[in-house]
């Protein structure tokens, strides 16, 4: 049993990893076709993972409802939103779930008036919290904090009309700031990040990194 529980997954990860690396370097139509097929499989399996994620969310809120945990009443609204939106998707403007998604109808209405409205509002209120955090932390106490503050102010002013009103070259300066020193620093960071990502990928392929198998490995 240990073979199926531990060895087989490690073998599959190793084989798939080596195959995926190999097909990248084989300049043949067969390799391209295999890459397309394996990518399609990957996409389908990942789609099943979405069902797992939704199950996990609903299971969590079902537990809250069952135990009458503090704030359990709000979990009813998770179910309400989920059921109404899913029903609209299944109804699919009268066409049913077995044909491509149709425009208009309850699904589009919920998407525009609930999902988009709530999504934009949720992220819009973050601007207040960012501004509040900035006020508390952006005190030009050190040289580094001053540089950070000046860069942030230039970028913010350069992206609104008042910036160009104060100094006509402000938008150009903020673009230069984004394209040159910002890109230099980002590139320095990303070189390290992707070297780390390649190292982690190799650890997964060779079975050194096994955390994806679960907690007991």
């Amino acid at each position: 049993m240990i073979f199926f529980k531990r060895t087989l997954p490690l073998v599959i990860a190793f084989v798939m990893g080596i195959v995926a690396i190999s097909i990248y370097y084989i300049p043949h139509q067969a390799a391209v076709d295999l890459n397309d097929l394996l990518s399609k499989w990957d996409r389908i399996i990942a789609a099943f993972a979405a069902f797992l994620g939704v199950y996990s969310l609903l299971y969590l809120h079902a537990g809250r409802l069952k135990r009458r945990q503090a704030g359990w009443g709000y979990s009813v609204f998770v179910y309400l939103g989920f059921v109404v939106m899913l029903t609209a998707a299944i109804y699919n403007n009268g066409a049913g779930p077995l044909v491509a998604l149709r425009k208009g109808g309850a699904y589009d209405w919920l998407y525009t008036n609930v999902f988009v409205a709530a999504d934009a509002s949720m992220f819009a209120i973050l601007s207040f919290f960012i501004a509040s955090a900035a006020y508390r932390t952006f005190r030009a106490r050190t040289t580094e904090a001053t540089i950070l503050l000046v860069a942030a102010v230039i970028v913010m002013l350069g992206r609104v009309p008042i910036g160009a009103l104060l100094w006509e070259s402000m938008p150009e300066l903020q673009q230069w700031l984004m394209n040159v020193p910002n890109m230099a620093a980002k590139r320095g960071i990303l070189l390290g990040v992707y070297l780390g990502a390649v190292a982690t990928a190799l650890r997964i392929i060779f079975g050194i990194e096994r955390s994806y198998l679960g907690g007991d490995e």
Binding site: A50, L57, Y79, F82
Partner: peptide
Amino acid sequence: EHLYVGVAAAYGLA
């Protein structure tokens, strides 16, 4: 907030 979470989950699933 909770309504949004439910709708977003169903939207993603759809």
